[in-house]
Amino acid sequence: MLLIWGHKEWLAEVQFLGVVNHPNLVKLLGYCSVDGERGIQRLLVYEYMPNRSLEDHLFNRALNPLPWITRLQIMLGAAQGLAYLHEGLEVQVIYRDFKSSNVLLDEDFKPKLSDFGLARKGPKGDRTHVSTAVVGTYGYAAPEYVETGHLSIHSDLWSFGVVLYEILTGRRVLERHRPTAEQRLLYWVRQYPADGKKFSMIIDPLLRDQYSINAARKIAKLADSCLNKNAKDQPTMNQVVEILKQAIQDSQKGTNSVNNNFGASGSKLGRKNPKLR
């Protein structure tokens, strides 16, 4: 269940999830709105996702680390969900709040995107963007959108690139104990480029070398392309899907592929990132 306080976000999610259907989007089972002593309280009922969120399994040290292949498969499913929003509907939909805490995991660790209260229709005709108030989550929101309020599907690409680096490094994009710009994730990883000799220094140590270095370089290059400030140089989400499929194949046949004998279990939800709103 998800308790939503804002009527606009609640209504948007009810309307959106009522018309879409994709294996990588969470299903809405029901909803209600009650006017009580505390005012109006609005509730959404999602399908049960026993393994909580990607955020939990990346950053909660009480859980077993996610295997490399599982991380890639989760990102592949998330990319397929975004590709459906961007190109699989009659109207283009911009998710606007892609982050690891919004990627929920079922019993088999298959991902489903959740929380569509901020989703909105993309530009029509020859327009390249829609102008809107800046909402989303610090660290994941694209700089151009934050600075100008110009929203496009490229904003989702930027957010996706951020999460790709989170699965590579096991570090949050913003961490309280790393307050300076020089210590933040995107600045830090750029000191270790994918083609550099020290690239492996950014890889999550919890993977314990059980990953394909070639596939990891491919993922870092993909993240960099998603984080390109020139929208024309970003891939489409369908192109992202194909690159992730290739990275999974490389990992499965590579000499230093992942050992899938790791376990993973659910836990309490981690803390949410601060909203821009």
Results as ranks from 00 to 15, higher is better:
H150E: 12
E90I: 02
R178A: 13
H86I: 05
R217E: 06
K124N: 12
T255E: 12
P65D: 01
Y95C: 12
L85R: 00
F116R: 07
G136N: 11
P274N: 14
K110Q: 11
E144F: 03
K8I: 14
K198P: 03
T132I: 03
N256E: 14
L58E: 12
W68L: 04
H22N: 13
R208I: 02
L29N: 14
L58Q: 05
D156I: 03
T70G: 05
Q183W: 07
H154I: 00
D35Q: 04
G6R: 12
Y211H: 10
L89R: 14
S265I: 07
T148P: 05
L164C: 10
L222G: 03
K229A: 10
Q92I: 12
Y211Q: 00
C226P: 06
K27A: 11
P235D: 01
S131A: 15
I74N: 11
Q249Y: 01
P123C: 00
P179N: 07
G170W: 07
R178H: 15
G196L: 08
L185K: 02
G266V: 07
A83Q: 14
L105A: 12
L72E: 00
R96Y: 04
N261R: 11
F160M: 08
Y145G: 09
L174K: 08
A223F: 00
P205C: 10
E147R: 12
C32M: 01
A264C: 06
A231K: 15
T255M: 09
K197Q: 11
S100W: 03
K221G: 06
L104D: 11
K110T: 09
P111G: 02
D224T: 13
I243V: 08
Y165L: 13
N214V: 15
Y31E: 02
Q80Y: 04
A62F: 05
N64K: 06
D224N: 13
P205M: 15
V14H: 06
R271F: 14
N51L: 10
L3H: 05
Y95K: 03
V45C: 14
E242H: 14
F262T: 05
G149Q: 02
G170Q: 13
L17A: 05
L244Y: 01
